[in-house]
Design a binder for these strands. Structure first.
Length: 568
DNA sequence: GCCGTTTTCGGCCCGACTGTTTTCAGTCG
């Protein structure tokens, strides 16, 4: 079982405990905390012994045993027992806004509802309002939600898509004179790879005017709630947007609160508590006296903490590092001097080498590697040694004409099924930069894929492994391999790993970046540009690396050209 | 179920809004 599957079991246990009358709320929380810790864990649980399992924060003796049972037998008695009491269809209902564990339990007990279809029938028949605590409004809202789920399902937007909507919302609100300041908080500000909703935070002395303006944002389709200082809407694309308005003196505290993550917030409120203080979205208080609140820096400082970039706020050790004043100085987009993965019309790119060179120069880069596909990708007109030699002459001609940018002669060579490469070593030896990537047979078992990647890493001509997991967000799962072993090999061979900046790849993921950092493996932030405008995608790769605590010195393409290659 | 600068018991983060209530529970972020 993979980590995310174990985490899923624990999350389901938490849900089922809640829906079925578990009296101890903290027991429920323990399972949820454990699920999160397991998802964040960069190493596969299967590789850890009981002692190492217990060292994961939030995993104690009992949960360590349960993890081992899960890994050995594939299931857990507690999980099966609970499933007998609470049907899976009932758990699905928790995703409906307005339905939490208490109401779902009542639905099951009083109306014998077992799934969404039962719920729809009961709501349409007006049966829900016979339960104490349910009324017409809830009934109506449930029907609306069910209709929406049927129409489009529940989805998270990729960060890049969310960014477009975020810009529109900000522009709309900024036109109101009542708005003194506005920005997007939440997972968007933390630059998570996907965003489930947008949290808009504004400063205003006339909050009701801001709410009014917000509700007039043209894409608003449904208003789920609107009060004095907050409102919630759903846009026509299905994205939920929450607005909160706070006074200026509370802005920093509110920004911390609504940026999250939830786990980060819990942690720093505990820090406040330990100091006899109370932290909420209005400020940091000692008794009735507010001691900080206007800026994030003020609040963190009053807690003895350095300011943490939002990308780090996942409760993955950043609070402890901030207390020790040992936060990393994270990579910034402007630290990148070059791009090391691009394509042209020689294979599946959309622009000539000359157009790409001009675009790279205009994007402020000093160098870029032209890395078209190798021959195996026939679909993309992959290059064989002869065409590669032709392309080399073309690059030399372009280099003569276009000044202010250096073009490296490169390749994105395919890693074949057994780990051999798609071009002979003597061909690779003539190139300045070699990206090696897996493009087919992604569903190999973990042992074979690990061997395949390590064999490629050990080829002395390979500089970096491209999009190492092959995952496509929302469409294709990452391939199975042992990250620890791959990192060890990459470290020993001084081979880098790529953070591919395509919005649907963002591969490596954040926790794997962090694991690479800890293993001393260097990264490359690359656009994988297929079009001149794609150099702008580099910022998304930078976001992902920042979430993995990556600093400039850990990224090869922050280096000047002459010190680029690790193995020379 | 976890955890420990108050360490093996007794804690465990906080507030707004909604709908349904007559003073508050449930949900959400």
């Amino acid at each position: 079982m993979r980590n995310d599957e174990v985490a899923q079991v624990f999350d389901e246990i938490a849900d089922m405990l809640e829906v079925g009358e578990e009296a101890n709320f903290f027991r429920v929380r323990a399972y949820r905390n454990a699920a999160r810790a397991i998802r964040d864990c960069p190493r596969q649980l299967a590789d850890l012994d009981a002692k190492a399992l217990g060292e994961i924060p939030g995993i104690g003796a009992d949960l360590a045993r349960k993890i081992q049972t899960l890994l050995e037998t594939g299931s857990l008695p507690l999980h099966r027992d609970l499933q007998a009491k609470v049907s899976p269809g009932l758990l699905e209902l928790l995703r409906i806004p307005g339905l939490g564990p208490k109401r779902v339990r009542l639905l099951g007990e009083r109306l014998k509802i077992r799934d969404a279809a039962d719920l729809k029938r009961a709501a349409e028949a007006g049966a829900l309002r016979t339960i104490r605590g349910f009324g017409e409004k809830i009934e109506e809202r449930i029907l609306q939600s069910l209709a929406r789920f049927e129409a489009e399902g529940v989805k998270r937007l990729q960060y890049a898509e969310a960014e477009k909507l975020a810009d529109e919302i900000l522009a709309h609100l900024k036109k109101s004179p009542a708005v003194e300041c506005v920005e997007i908080a939440g997972s968007f500000r933390r630059r998570r790879e996907t965003v489930g909703d947008l949290d808009v935070l504004a400063i205003s002395a006339k909050p009701e005017r801001v709410v009014e303006r917000f509700l007039k944002f043209p894409p608003v389709r449904t208003v789920l709630g609107a009060g004095q200082t907050k409102a919630t809407v759903v846009l026509s694309g299905g994205l939920q947007v929450d607005l909160r308005i706070v006074p200026r003196k509370s802005y920093g505290a509110a920004l911390i609160y609504f940026t999250g993550s939830k786990a980060h917030g819990v942690h720093i409120r505990r820090v406040a508590q330990d100091r006899g203080l109370l932290l909420n979205e209005y400020g940091l208080m000692r008794g009735n006296k507010t001691i900080a609140g206007a800026t994030e820096e003020d609040v963190y400082r009053a807690l003895g903490l350095d300011w943490m970039p939002p990308e780090m706020r996942e409760d993955r050790g950043e609070v402890e590092a901030a207390a020790r004043h040992q936060l990393p100085a994270l990579l910034r987009l402007e630290d990148l001097r070059g791009d090391l993965h691009t394509h042209s019309t020689w294979t599946d790119g959309r622009a000539s080498i000359e157009e790409m060179a001009k675009a790279a120069r205009d994007a402020g880069l000093e160098y870029f590697a032209m890395t078209d596909h190798s021959r195996r990708l026939a679909m993309a007109h992959g290059l064989d040694p002869a065409r590669l030699a032709e392309q080399r002459r073309e690059i030399e001609r372009v280099a003569e004409r276009i000044k202010g940018i250096t073009i490296l002669r490169g390749i994105e060579v395919d890693i074949l099924e057994d780990g051999r490469l798609d071009l002979p070593d003597q061909t690779l030896a003539q190139l300045d930069w070699v990206v090696a990537s897996v493009h087919y047979k992604l569903e190999q078992n973990a042992r074979d894929m690990t061997r395949r990647l390590i064999k490629a890493i050990r080829n002395r001509h390979v500089d970096v492994i491209g999009h190492p997991s092959g995952r496509l967000i929302g469409r294709r799962e990452p391939s199975n391999f042992d990250l620890g072993e791959v990192l060890r090999a990459a470290g020993a061979e001084r081979c880098a790993l790529e953070v591919n900046s395509q919005p649907d790849r963002l591969d490596l993921i954040d926790t794997a970046c962090r694991a690479a950092k800890e293993a001393g493996v260097k990264l490359v932030i690359a656009s994988d540009a297929h079009h001149p405008r794609d150099f702008a995608l580099l910022k998304f790769g930078v976001n992902q690396a920042r979430r993995g605590w990556i600093e400039p010195a850990e990224v090869l393409n922050t280096r000047p050209l002459k010190s680029l290659r690790q193995r020379d």
